[in-house]
Simulated assay, not measured.
Amino acid sequence: MPDDVHRQGKPITAISEGDSLTVTESISERDLLIYLGLTNDNNPLYIQNEYAKSLGHKKTIVPPILLSGIITSSVSKLLPGPGSEIVNLSANFIMPVYHDEIITFSFEVIKVDLMKEVVMISVEATNSQDERVLDSVVMARPPRQE
């Protein structure tokens, strides 16, 4: 059996400030139901249209943790990629994201710290009207080279 059976992401020495990535996603009803089942979060803002509308929203909104999940999975899968560890994440949720709304996440490496073996990645998410819905900064430890 080969030693390298799993793909590995970029090591820190292969990452540069300015490296970027764009991910487009939409949270479906199925995604939301899985989240609600896993967390037992029964906030009516996430599942009842009339309730959401009574609070001034167009319809039910996506839980912010699902947007954070898109960010962390993009780091884990793509930049730096498999083997990466999230060590810190901060996010500002600027506008609500609605179910089935298409969101574009733009990632950019803003700092590579070889001493601490981490990269800082800035993330901005926009909706289909090009309105900013989220700003985030992620600190990740890329997979170590052996």
Rank of each mutant, 00 (worst) to 15 (best):
K10R: 08
P11H: 13
I12S: 04
I12P: 07
I12A: 00
S16K: 09
S16V: 00
E17V: 11
E17R: 10
D19S: 00
S20W: 01
S20L: 00
V23R: 07
V23Y: 12
E25L: 10
E25A: 13
S26N: 13
S26Q: 15
S28D: 08
R30W: 14
R30A: 10
D31R: 08
L36H: 06
L36W: 05
G37H: 12
T39D: 07
T39P: 09
D41F: 09
P44K: 03
P44V: 00
P44S: 04
Y46A: 08
I47Y: 12
Q48S: 13
Q48Y: 15
N49Q: 08
Y51T: 00
A52T: 02
A52S: 03
A52Y: 04
K53E: 01
L55E: 06
L55N: 06
G56K: 00
K59S: 15
T60C: 09
I61M: 10
V62I: 14
V62S: 07
P63A: 12
P64R: 05
I65Q: 13
L66D: 07
L67A: 04
S68M: 15
T72D: 02
T72K: 06
T72Q: 05
L79M: 13
P80S: 00
G81P: 03
G81E: 02
V87L: 04
S90W: 05
S90I: 14
A91L: 07
N92G: 06
F93K: 04
P96C: 12
P96I: 13
P96L: 06
P96A: 04
P96K: 09
V97A: 07
Y98T: 09
Y98D: 08
H99C: 08
D100P: 03
D100E: 14
I102D: 12
S106P: 05
F107K: 11
E108C: 05
V109M: 10
K111T: 05
